[in-house]
Amino acid sequence: EDAVVDRLTQFVDQVQQFQARFQQVVADPEGQIVEQAAGVFYLSRPGKFRWDYHTPYAQQIVADGQQIWFYDEDLEQITVKNQSATLADTPAGLLSGKSRPDEAYHITRLNSDDGLQWVELTPKEADANYQRVQLGFSEQSLQQMRMVDAFDQQTRLVFSEANVNQPIAAEKFQFVPPQGVDVIGESP
């Protein structure tokens, strides 16, 4: 295969810890932006990650290796789910993946864009939750991620100030429910 897929394999094989700021833009099928959010993403492979959304709302999604905790502060509710069941074929699962991407995805190379080299992954499993994921790599590491769901809604993530393989505190991947907030779902 070629450089880009090597970068994906390189990322999968060599990146154990990854931390970066992210900007998330969600656009409808006509390209109209419906939401812009920002926060920090933490990854500890295999199996652990955390999305801290700071704006426009406060939300934390924490995968501790067994479960995924989803806390939306304004909704004042925490939902907890078994990680493997929930994560099966999601982009987040792909990044933190215990399995290799080529097991679950057809991988093709795209032309470079935004100065990045791109690869597209389409789920092998027909009824996956989304049509395709595109990953954009710079020399250093993963820089962009684009997901298109079943209704052609596009979510685009741009990572910046990335730290690759720098230690991340273990607490980042442990979720402790704040006092007085309902926890819904199978919690230990």
């Binding site: 969600v26 939750n129 989304y130 769901d149 809604q153």
Partner: peptide, 30 residues
């Protein structure tokens, strides 16, 4: 009961029609 879901919501309502879209985190499971 014991189960919970979080979803993004978009709801367009007109006098005689509606469209509601629920999307899971990372716009999957819509």
């Amino acid at each position: 009961g014991k189960e919970g879901w979080n979803a993004g919501v978009s709801w367009h309502q007109s006098p005689d029609q509606f469209e509601i879209r629920l999307t899971g985190p990372f716009s999957q499971g819509a």
